[in-house]
Protein backbone atom coordinates (compact mmCIF):
# COMPACT_ATOMS: atom_id res chain seq x y z
CA UNK A 1 0.00 0.00 0.00
CA UNK A 2 1.77 3.14 -1.08
CA UNK A 3 -0.27 5.90 -2.63
CA UNK A 4 -3.90 6.75 -2.77
CA UNK A 5 -5.64 4.63 -5.30
CA UNK A 6 -6.04 6.59 -8.52
CA UNK A 7 -9.66 5.53 -8.77
CA UNK A 8 -10.73 7.25 -5.56
CA UNK A 9 -12.50 10.44 -6.55
CA UNK A 10 -11.83 12.53 -3.45
CA UNK A 11 -8.29 13.94 -3.48
CA UNK A 12 -6.33 13.36 -0.29
CA UNK A 13 -5.73 16.12 2.26
CA UNK A 14 -1.97 16.25 1.71
CA UNK A 15 -2.29 16.44 -2.04
CA UNK A 16 -4.49 19.52 -2.08
CA UNK A 17 -3.23 21.21 1.07
CA UNK A 18 -3.37 25.00 0.73
CA UNK A 19 -1.45 27.30 3.04
CA UNK A 20 -3.16 29.63 5.54
CA UNK A 21 -4.33 32.90 4.12
CA UNK A 22 -1.57 35.17 5.40
CA UNK A 23 1.24 33.15 3.79
CA UNK A 24 2.21 33.62 0.17
CA UNK A 25 2.76 29.96 -0.66
CA UNK A 26 3.16 26.51 0.87
CA UNK A 27 6.95 26.65 0.86
CA UNK A 28 7.05 29.88 2.85
CA UNK A 29 4.66 28.40 5.35
CA UNK A 30 6.75 25.24 5.72
CA UNK A 31 9.97 27.20 6.08
CA UNK A 32 8.36 29.56 8.56
CA UNK A 33 7.06 26.72 10.70
CA UNK A 34 10.45 25.08 10.68
CA UNK A 35 12.22 28.29 11.68
CA UNK A 36 9.72 28.67 14.49
CA UNK A 37 10.41 25.17 15.73
CA UNK A 38 14.16 25.71 15.61
CA UNK A 39 13.74 28.82 17.71
CA UNK A 40 11.59 26.87 20.13
CA UNK A 41 14.25 24.17 20.36
CA UNK A 42 16.79 26.87 21.17
CA UNK A 43 14.66 27.89 24.13
CA UNK A 44 14.55 24.25 25.22
CA UNK A 45 18.32 23.99 25.05
CA UNK A 46 18.63 27.13 27.16
CA UNK A 47 16.14 25.79 29.66
CA UNK A 48 18.13 22.60 30.11
CA UNK A 49 21.42 24.45 30.09
CA UNK A 50 20.21 26.08 33.30
CA UNK A 51 20.03 22.58 34.77
CA UNK A 52 23.43 21.62 33.41
CA UNK A 53 24.92 24.80 34.79
CA UNK A 54 23.52 24.11 38.25
CA UNK A 55 24.88 20.56 38.00
CA UNK A 56 28.34 21.81 37.04
CA UNK A 57 28.55 24.29 39.91
CA UNK A 58 27.31 21.90 42.57
CA UNK A 59 29.50 19.11 41.28
CA UNK A 60 32.44 21.48 41.48
CA UNK A 61 31.57 22.12 45.14
CA UNK A 62 31.18 18.46 46.08
CA UNK A 63 33.36 16.65 43.60
CA UNK A 64 34.13 13.39 45.41
CA UNK A 65 30.73 13.09 47.03
CA UNK A 66 28.98 13.43 43.69
CA UNK A 67 31.10 10.71 42.14
CA UNK A 68 30.36 8.36 44.99
CA UNK A 69 26.68 9.26 45.04
CA UNK A 70 26.35 8.74 41.31
CA UNK A 71 27.67 5.19 41.39
CA UNK A 72 25.76 4.32 44.52
CA UNK A 73 22.30 5.65 43.72
CA UNK A 74 22.15 5.20 39.97
CA UNK A 75 22.39 2.00 38.00
CA UNK A 76 24.14 2.73 34.73
CA UNK A 77 22.60 -0.35 33.12
CA UNK A 78 19.11 1.07 33.43
CA UNK A 79 20.36 4.38 32.06
CA UNK A 80 22.04 2.62 29.14
CA UNK A 81 18.89 0.66 28.38
CA UNK A 82 16.91 3.86 28.18
CA UNK A 83 19.59 5.48 26.04
CA UNK A 84 19.29 2.61 23.59
CA UNK A 85 15.52 2.87 23.52
CA UNK A 86 15.66 6.57 22.74
CA UNK A 87 18.29 6.09 20.03
CA UNK A 88 16.08 3.56 18.29
CA UNK A 89 13.13 5.93 18.46
CA UNK A 90 15.18 8.77 16.99
CA UNK A 91 16.00 6.52 14.07
CA UNK A 92 12.36 5.55 13.50
CA UNK A 93 11.28 9.19 13.73
CA UNK A 94 13.76 10.08 11.02
CA UNK A 95 12.40 7.17 8.99
CA UNK A 96 8.85 8.46 9.34
CA UNK A 97 9.87 11.81 7.83
CA UNK A 98 11.46 9.91 4.97
CA UNK A 99 8.33 7.80 4.56
CA UNK A 100 6.11 10.84 4.20
CA UNK A 101 8.46 12.35 1.64
CA UNK A 102 8.21 9.12 -0.37
CA UNK A 103 4.48 8.82 0.27
CA UNK A 104 4.85 5.39 1.89
CA UNK A 105 1.82 5.59 4.15
CA UNK A 106 2.23 2.16 5.74
CA UNK A 107 5.86 2.75 6.70
CA UNK A 108 4.96 6.16 8.06
CA UNK A 109 2.39 4.67 10.40
CA UNK A 110 4.65 1.83 11.60
CA UNK A 111 7.59 4.14 12.28
CA UNK A 112 5.45 6.61 14.20
CA UNK A 113 4.00 3.86 16.33
CA UNK A 114 7.40 2.31 17.09
CA UNK A 115 8.69 5.72 18.13
CA UNK A 116 5.75 6.29 20.44
CA UNK A 117 6.16 2.81 21.95
CA UNK A 118 9.84 3.50 22.59
CA UNK A 119 8.84 6.66 24.42
CA UNK A 120 6.42 4.68 26.54
CA UNK A 121 9.09 2.06 27.33
CA UNK A 122 11.42 4.86 28.41
CA UNK A 123 8.83 6.20 30.80
CA UNK A 124 7.90 2.79 32.17
CA UNK A 125 11.54 1.96 32.85
CA UNK A 126 12.06 5.33 34.46
CA UNK A 127 9.02 5.15 36.69
CA UNK A 128 9.01 1.47 37.47
CA UNK A 129 12.71 0.68 37.84
CA UNK A 130 14.06 3.99 39.04
CA UNK A 131 11.55 6.34 40.60
CA UNK A 132 9.53 3.63 42.34
CA UNK A 133 12.37 1.90 44.21
CA UNK A 134 13.94 5.28 44.96
CA UNK A 135 10.81 6.54 46.63
CA UNK A 136 10.60 3.33 48.66
CA UNK A 137 14.19 3.58 49.84
CA UNK A 138 13.90 7.28 50.62
CA UNK A 139 16.49 8.32 48.03
CA UNK A 140 14.73 11.63 47.71
CA UNK A 141 15.92 15.18 47.08
CA UNK A 142 16.71 17.86 49.61
CA UNK A 143 14.75 17.91 52.84
CA UNK A 144 12.81 14.77 51.90
CA UNK A 145 15.97 12.65 51.86
CA UNK A 146 15.41 9.67 54.16
CA UNK A 147 17.94 7.09 53.03
CA UNK A 148 19.64 5.28 55.89
CA UNK A 149 22.05 3.16 53.89
CA UNK A 150 22.74 -0.44 54.79
CA UNK A 151 24.86 -1.10 57.79
CA UNK A 152 28.54 -0.87 56.96
CA UNK A 153 28.00 -0.55 53.24
CA UNK A 154 27.50 3.03 52.21
CA UNK A 155 27.34 6.04 54.45
CA UNK A 156 25.40 8.89 52.83
CA UNK A 157 27.32 12.14 52.82
CA UNK A 158 25.70 15.47 53.55
CA UNK A 159 25.71 16.43 49.89
CA UNK A 160 23.83 13.34 48.71
CA UNK A 161 20.48 15.14 48.95
CA UNK A 162 21.88 17.81 46.64
CA UNK A 163 22.97 15.25 44.09
CA UNK A 164 19.56 13.64 44.24
CA UNK A 165 17.90 17.05 43.84
CA UNK A 166 19.68 17.56 40.57
CA UNK A 167 18.93 14.01 39.49
CA UNK A 168 15.24 14.20 40.30
CA UNK A 169 14.59 17.63 38.91
CA UNK A 170 16.56 17.13 35.70
CA UNK A 171 15.15 13.70 34.90
CA UNK A 172 11.62 14.73 35.84
CA UNK A 173 11.72 17.74 33.53
CA UNK A 174 13.19 15.55 30.81
CA UNK A 175 10.62 12.82 31.43
CA UNK A 176 7.87 15.39 31.09
CA UNK A 177 9.27 16.27 27.68
CA UNK A 178 9.24 12.60 26.70
CA UNK A 179 5.61 12.37 27.78
CA UNK A 180 4.68 15.33 25.62
CA UNK A 181 6.63 13.78 22.76
CA UNK A 182 4.65 10.53 23.06
CA UNK A 183 1.39 12.45 22.92
CA UNK A 184 2.57 14.32 19.83
CA UNK A 185 3.68 11.12 18.13
CA UNK A 186 0.30 9.50 18.76
CA UNK A 187 -1.38 12.60 17.38
CA UNK A 188 0.76 12.27 14.25
CA UNK A 189 -0.17 8.59 13.95
CA UNK A 190 -3.83 9.49 14.20
CA UNK A 191 -3.45 12.09 11.47
CA UNK A 192 -1.36 9.70 9.38
CA UNK A 193 -4.28 7.28 9.60
CA UNK A 194 -6.40 9.93 7.94
CA UNK A 195 -3.74 10.27 5.21
CA UNK A 196 -2.82 13.82 6.16
CA UNK A 197 0.84 13.56 5.24
CA UNK A 198 2.55 13.14 1.95
CA UNK A 199 5.43 14.50 -0.13
CA UNK A 200 3.71 17.86 -0.56
CA UNK A 201 2.73 18.34 3.05
CA UNK A 202 4.51 16.87 6.05
CA UNK A 203 5.19 19.96 8.17
CA UNK A 204 3.96 18.39 11.40
CA UNK A 205 5.96 15.18 10.96
CA UNK A 206 9.11 17.14 10.28
CA UNK A 207 8.67 19.45 13.26
CA UNK A 208 7.63 16.87 15.84
CA UNK A 209 10.61 14.88 14.58
CA UNK A 210 12.92 17.80 15.32
CA UNK A 211 11.46 18.07 18.81
CA UNK A 212 11.91 14.37 19.44
CA UNK A 213 15.56 14.50 18.38
CA UNK A 214 16.13 17.30 20.87
CA UNK A 215 14.54 15.34 23.71
CA UNK A 216 16.87 12.55 22.75
CA UNK A 217 19.89 14.79 22.65
CA UNK A 218 19.22 16.14 26.12
CA UNK A 219 19.14 12.59 27.43
CA UNK A 220 22.42 11.85 25.65
CA UNK A 221 23.94 14.56 27.87
CA UNK A 222 22.07 13.69 31.04
CA UNK A 223 22.97 10.00 30.94
CA UNK A 224 26.76 10.29 31.18
CA UNK A 225 26.66 13.30 33.50
CA UNK A 226 24.37 11.65 36.03
CA UNK A 227 25.08 7.93 35.66
CA UNK A 228 28.64 7.59 34.45
CA UNK A 229 31.00 10.29 35.69
Amino acid sequence: MTTASPTSSKPLYHETYKHQEHWRNNEDEFEGAKLGVWLFLTTEILLFSGMFCGYAILRFFYLDDFTAASSHYLNWKIGALNTGVLLISSFTVAMSVRASQLNKQGQLMINLLISAICGVIFLVVKLGWEYGPKIEKGELPGAMFAYGGHAGEYIPSTSDPVFLSIYWVATAIHGFHVLIGVVLLLWLAWRAGKKHFGPKHYTAVENVGLYWHLVDLVWIFLFPLLYLV
Binding site: I57, V162, S165, W168, V169
Partner: peptide
Amino acid sequence: FHVGIFDPALGGDPVLFMHF
Protein backbone atom coordinates in the same frame (compact mmCIF):
# COMPACT_ATOMS: atom_id res chain seq x y z
CA PHE B 1 9.42 20.14 47.94
CA HIS B 2 12.46 21.80 49.58
CA VAL B 3 14.85 20.18 47.14
CA GLY B 4 17.64 22.49 48.27
CA ILE B 5 19.37 23.50 45.05
CA PHE B 6 19.39 27.14 46.19
CA ASP B 7 19.06 26.58 49.94
CA PRO B 8 22.41 26.76 51.77
CA ALA B 9 20.97 24.89 54.74
CA LEU B 10 20.52 21.87 52.48
CA GLY B 11 23.84 22.23 50.68
CA GLY B 12 22.56 24.36 47.79
CA ASP B 13 23.94 27.66 46.56
CA PRO B 14 21.96 30.91 46.85
CA VAL B 15 24.46 32.82 44.73
CA LEU B 16 23.61 30.43 41.91
CA PHE B 17 20.09 31.80 42.07
CA MET B 18 21.34 35.36 41.78
CA HIS B 19 23.36 34.45 38.69
CA PHE B 20 20.42 32.67 37.09
